[in-house]
Design a protein around this nucleic acid. Structure first.
Lengths: 194, 194
DNA sequence: GCAAATTAATGATTTATTCAAG
DNA sequence: CTTGAATAAATCATTAATTTGC
């Protein structure tokens, strides 16, 4: 019993969504291929968090090789994956001082948030994040032909997080974008085109 | 002291943003004309809250007559205006039981939030919202030539919220979109185009 | 084995919060 | 101090895993 009036939303109209993956050409939402998920995960492991417009464009382009995909799917995937990784990590890194009052049952991890905001957070989270942010400035997407090599390299690198920077320059084609535009901003991606 | 690495973001590169309005053709953000704000406000008063892709497109188109504007500006305007109206209303409707401890200084209006979530909200908000949702299905944008008339009608209607539906059919060209696409969803707007 | 029923994941939206320009 | 812009959190909704009874 949905209390919304939205769930009508074009059922039956939609053509089959993904040529591969799974069974019966349902309509609803994007159903990523395992390859697609793998690649996205690799990029995430490599430190990509909030891809720019161009990056999303390229990723989507590359991944479309493995199945139907839209840019927004890529965007959402990173949004969700980032958030849920954060959430997961927060959960495990705060079980220690998780003795609060009853009132906190109402807001499951809000307090962790406030905590995170108003005091130095459990280091490794932001250490990692900062690294990401920096590196992302020069991170470029891979050509499809190099996919396998990329996967191998990144996977290898993920076992040793101090060779991560190496992994970038090895796996992805890195070239200086400092003088380039770099005016992306995730919102451009969401709206500028319309 | 911003702890982000984002604020670099193309300063100086940007060409002048808005030809009119204000002073010196700065780059930064959109600076709406008074006419633009007026029109947007009218639409808001008329009940528009989360315009669809097409609606945003049209609004942007119309408003571009008064000055430089992008679709995303329209999108953001509604986002912000909706949120801040809600916030404003929440503030005034919960001042009564606003006696909390010192710790709350850290999170200014968080508690109001939780409140809103865990108990029936001040009715009229959601009453209004529901009305909006329904009406919006048939709300169409105005032609620019009718702007003045629209403004007049909407303003008039805003004094008597029970003639609101009348105002729609009077001020805007209403035609049945039930059989039409109606697959918009705000996210299409943000990403589908890219 | 195999569907119906439940639950867990996760794609998609909305809402809240924060940043920062003017 | 207002508000445009952007991010993060919370929420909704659908699909896949899985459990369960047969």
């Amino acid at each position: 019993m949905s209390s919304r009036g939205f769930n009508i939303k074009a059922r039956g109209l939609c053509n089959n969504n993904n040529g591969e993956r799974g069974t019966g050409a349902k309509c609803g939402r994007w159903n990523p291929t395992v390859e697609q998920v793998n690649l996205l995960t690799d990029l995430f492991k490599a430190g990509l968090r909030t891809p720019s417009t161009d990056q999303i464009q390229k990723i989507s382009m590359e991944l479309s090789f493995y199945g139907k995909i839209e840019s927004k799917n890529v965007f959402y995937w990173f949004q969700n994956h980032k958030a849920r990784e954060r959430q997961k990590r927060r959960k495990i890194s705060t079980v220690d001082f998780d003795h609060r009052q009853d009132t906190d049952r109402f807001r499951p991890h809000r307090d962790n948030l406030n905590l995170r905001r108003h005091q130095p957070p459990p280091i490794e989270i932001f250490e990692v994040c900062n690294v990401e942010e920096k590196v992302l400035e020069t991170l470029q997407l891979f050509p499809l032909s190099k996919v396998e090599r990329v996967r191998a390299n990144v996977t290898a690198a993920s076992h040793n997080q101090y060779t991560r920077e190496q992994a970038y320059t090895t796996a992805f084609s890195t070239f200086s974008t400092c003088g380039a535009e770099m005016e992306h901003s995730p919102l451009d991606l969401r709206l500028s085109c319309l």
